[in-house]
Measured scan of single mutants.
Amino acid sequence: MSIQHFRVALIPFFAAFCLPVFAHPETLVKVKDAEDQLGARVGYIELDLNSGKILESFRPEERFPMMSTFKVLLCGAVLSRVDAGQEQLGRRIHYSQNDLVEYSPVTEKHLTDGMTVRELCSAAITMSDNTAANLLLTTIGGPKELTAFLHNMGDHVTRLDRWEPELNEAIPNDERDTTMPAAMATTLRKLLTGELLTLASRQQLIDWMEADKVAGPLLRSALPAGWFIADKSGAGERGSRGIIAALGPDGKPSRIVVIYTTGSQATMDERNRQIAEIGASLIKHW
């Protein structure tokens, strides 16, 4: 067993022997301040990774656009098919120029040779490549099948209805392509620590998230040296922004954090800054 596999296998073990965790309302004060600064709703939840206990939450059962955070769930569904012998990570998928959609920095470079399922998941999570996500959605049967996968996990809230990039439209009061912070946090925890996926697939999923290259201005910008984070960000229309993450000190994750916002007129930089400040408060009061 590799060191990384050992780390993920012992996530519940280490967490069980940690000192009790206590909620700190100071972080919620910052979440509410972010709402004021952005002029928009902000949803927040913080779960203990081992027990699933909610440590703090704000608007945990209000719907927010998922945006690209759905790509972690998508690759979880792909990995479940791999575990069941219905898919192979090494299978190569070929596609054409007509398949390319807006923001496809990886797939646009491989029109000639195609990409493997493993490479597509890596591109979808680490670079948020939209064509990679659409190609992977095709392998599982489309958005409705991802929703069905989530329902089978016990998540009857999260739903995907459309493809990239239309799913980022974020129309107010439109339930399409949305989740709730509580539902997303619980589902992410199941994917990373539950028995739904094999140990190898859980490790692969967290490795992809740990290698995320496009979430630097968010929670990662607030992390002290030595902290662990595996995350996936999302951005959408109407001032929408979000991030889902597993993080913790001492090089291992111990909490799940989900943050979503929508309806702001603020710039992307300002949305990023507010999420980073929430992260800084979380870490300060850990």
Rank of each mutant, 00 (worst) to 15 (best):
A246P: 00
A77Y: 12
I256L: 12
K284N: 11
G242V: 01
N168D: 07
T193M: 14
K144P: 10
R63N: 07
D231E: 04
R189Y: 15
I54M: 11
V42Q: 01
E175T: 15
V8R: 13
L192G: 03
K53G: 11
R91Y: 06
D129Q: 00
G85A: 09
E61G: 13
A84Y: 10
N272H: 04
G142K: 04
I206F: 13
A215V: 04
A84I: 12
L150P: 01
Q88K: 12
D129W: 00
T198H: 08
A225Y: 12
E210Q: 13
A77R: 09
A235P: 00
N98E: 15
E169G: 14
E46Q: 10
P217S: 10
A40K: 03
V31L: 11
D99C: 06
G141S: 07
L160V: 14
V117R: 01
S80E: 12
A225F: 10
L74R: 00
F22S: 15
M1E: 01
S281T: 13
S128H: 00
L219I: 14
E56M: 08
T267L: 10
L38V: 07
L282E: 04
A245V: 04
V101P: 02
E61A: 13
D212Q: 07
I278K: 00
G242K: 00
S233L: 02
S80N: 12
T138K: 15
T178V: 05
I278P: 00
T69V: 03
Q204F: 07
S80A: 11
A211D: 15
I259G: 01
N173I: 09
R189M: 10
A16M: 15
D250R: 14
L137Y: 09
K109E: 14
A222S: 14
K30G: 05
P105G: 04
I3Q: 13
L89A: 07
T262V: 05
H24E: 12
F228Y: 14
T267F: 07
P249A: 08
L247V: 11
L137W: 03
S281K: 14
V257A: 06
L247S: 02
S57T: 11
P105H: 06
M127F: 11
M66I: 10
Y95N: 01
A124V: 08
Q274L: 15
F6T: 07
A211Y: 09
L247D: 00
D207I: 10
V78C: 05
D212H: 04
R220L: 03
C75S: 07
P143R: 03
P165D: 06
L135A: 06
M127E: 14
K30Y: 06
I93L: 12
R220E: 03
S264W: 04
A215C: 04
T193E: 14
R91S: 07
V42R: 00
V8I: 13
G43W: 00
L28Q: 08
A266N: 12
E119T: 06
R92N: 09
S57Q: 13
A276E: 08
A230T: 02
P20A: 05
L89R: 03
I259T: 03
R271A: 10
S240T: 07
K213A: 15
S122I: 14
C121N: 02
P20F: 03
